[in-house]
Design a protein around this nucleic acid. Structure first.
Lengths: 357, 357
DNA sequence: TTGTATGCGTTATCAC
DNA sequence: GTGATAACGCATACAA
């Protein structure tokens, strides 16, 4: 069964292909009657235009692509929803494209630009370390949203991309500073992989800085790196990290996990070891996912302003598309949400000698 | 900056376009030297073939699409991972396409078949109520995986599609039967929307059947429907449902939520109301997500064999593609995982008079 | 208002 | 081995 084309429709209707094309694309210059007739025939014969042919021919296509790395991250769910709504509100069409952890997002983007005649791109998640030359292959406006960016710090040239993010270093500092202010001195950090140079590294750096400012020496053995054989930032990894720390009989009064999921996993391990939260150990997370609110005890966490960030992403992108505005880097403040999982390191919460497990 | 095309590459290399094409597509009939030279030029000039043009021209394209409804469902994360691995293992390329809740997945599929010259399709999630005529528009093999299917029951004609699923009715029955066997008689169900005719309805039916078999009358007021203004199956919705039940001072000793997330939300509401789990109220979920294992208390749930189902999906699809095998409906047994959130309805767990909240 | 012809960038079919 | 050239299915400039 050969698929039906625009020619077939034209033949059936006894009109030219351009008339059919006009009917499909809601062109003004067409008689309403012939249009109705064509639409009718199209429906009856289940004609569907071939997008490849359209994209090939069309010069401009009003479509925006969202490229997302780590699609399983629940953090992105709400964000995508807003992005889609806003893009459609602007009469653009929306394409969500997942890029694999091992793939190069810029390569994927370049391919999509050609294939779909994109008008703009939003990069979500992942980690950017592309050279200026590589970025120049992106011939349409784009915004990096909540993606880790390696700030080499040295170069002071104006950055040639727009971005929306939180200051992972600063926010992480905020959390650890809070824990310290509660009197905690032995604070474990469940950090990302050891060779991480992205968001995970920034959060670790914030932890170290906060300790320093509180005159608490940094201890390498208090830094628990995730198991590389398990999905990073997952509950399972948090559980594994915490187990390891318990086996090593580390002494601590607080645990700071660099993501909420990791924190939940850590909680499980602590509870199984007979530690109460927060009476025996305070636990804090990062991200501000739903689960932080609904978990018991609710998690102290850093809530990223997801919605604001999504709106800002759209704003930046369309400013570039429509007004040709220059690049802008927006950094949003996140909120320290104090939950039930942390408390002052008082007599009740004093450092307990590790028990056998 | 006009994008570079295959013609440009040919010109630069001083060869014909067909030679360049051969180089790109690893055709055998080409001199290794010229090929190397062409590849070199391609790299230097960042030439990227236009996929729209390729798809348009190519007769066969070895690609499989996975269409997924409700991409935020963490249940699908692992599934997608396996599907991708297996598809690539078979030297096919993999396209993940999210379809909106309001979109018609078959329409989207038909469009993609033409656009990408698909070889096969996997539908993930959502709910199928398409007419036979509509399904016939799908001109390539496809498998419905974990999608709700409206079984009109009447027609005994062989089904014209392949599917992989669990028996939501039976598994739901299993759970409620278990709760009953623990002595619970007042079991609340947090069901999906009232007008749901899909998976949610099946799970509700299983609940009703189990009650009946245990000679427990079904009470309409024990059936709490989700708030349609909130995302279905979310923690937030579970929380809202439970709050409502508590305000109405319903008396119950167990709560069965039709998804794990919903169960977590319900737990939060119960705890805030001073009820202990499982001492005062037993809580059960459905799906077997990670969170069920790591939550405290760990959730009693029905674990769907995600991995097996993913592998089976691939097997079915490729059997149809390669061997032209007929359709097959595979129903996998799920596992009742007994967690810490349920216990016998004994003296400790006796029905408590509802308290003021 | 409508039809015809051209080309989008690529692959496939030929000849050479 | 290699190079013209004809499709692929559609949108559009232009002629009618």
């Amino acid at each position: 069964m050969e698929p039906i084309t625009i020619k077939d429709v034209a033949k059936i209707c006894g009109v030219g292909v351009s008339t059919v094309s006009r009917a499909i694309n809601n062109h003004p210059d067409i008689n309403q009657e012939t249009k109705d007739r064509i639409i009718q025939v199209i429906k009856e014969n289940h004609y569907v235009p071939n997008n490849s042919a359209r994209n090939l021919k069309r010069s401009e296509a009003r479509t925006i692509a969202v490229l997302i790395k780590g699609i399983s991250n629940p953090f992105f769910a709400r964000m995508i929803q807003i992005l889609e709504e806003e893009i459609q509100k602007k009469k653009y069409s929306f394409v969500l494209h997942r890029v694999d952890e091992k793939e190069d997002e810029v390569d994927v983007a370049v391919e999509l630009i050609k294939e779909k005649r994109l008008k703009g791109i939003i990069f979500l998640g992942g980690f950017f370390t592309h050279s200026r030359e590589k970025l120049q292959q992106l011939t349409v406006p784009y915004v990096l949203s909540t993606v880790g960016i390696l700030n080499t710090g040295e170069e002071k040239e104006p950055l040639d991309y727009s971005s929306v993010s939180v200051d992972d270093f600063e926010e992480s500092y905020k959390m650890v500073d809070y824990l310290c202010s509660l009197g905690h001195k032995d604070i474990l950090i469940l950090a990302s992989c050891e060779d991480d140079e992205s968001i995970g590294a920034l959060r670790l750096a914030g932890y170290q800085k906060a300790l320093k400012d509180h005159h608490i020496p940094f201890r390498q053995d208090h830094c628990i790196y995730m198991d590389e054989s398990i999905q990073t930032y997952s509950m399972e990894n948090g559980y594994a990290c915490m187990k390891r720390a318990l086996v090593e009989k580390l002494s601590f009064t607080a645990v700071y996990a660099v993501s909420d999921s990791t924190a939940i996993g850590a909680c499980r391990a602590l509870i199984e070891a007979g530690r109460r939260i927060p009476q025996d150990v305070s636990v804090a997370g990062f991200d501000g996912l739903d689960i932080a609110r609904f978990y018991h005890p609710s998690l102290t966490t850093i809530r990223q302003p997801v919605e604001k960030m999504a709106y800002a992403t759209i704003r930046l992108l369309f400013n570039e598309i429509k007004k040709g505005s220059g690049h802008q880097q927006l950094v949003f403040p996140a909120e320290l949400v104090i939950g039930e999982s942390t408390r002052a390191c008082g007599p009740e919460g004093a450092s307990i000698a590790p028990r056998a497990i």
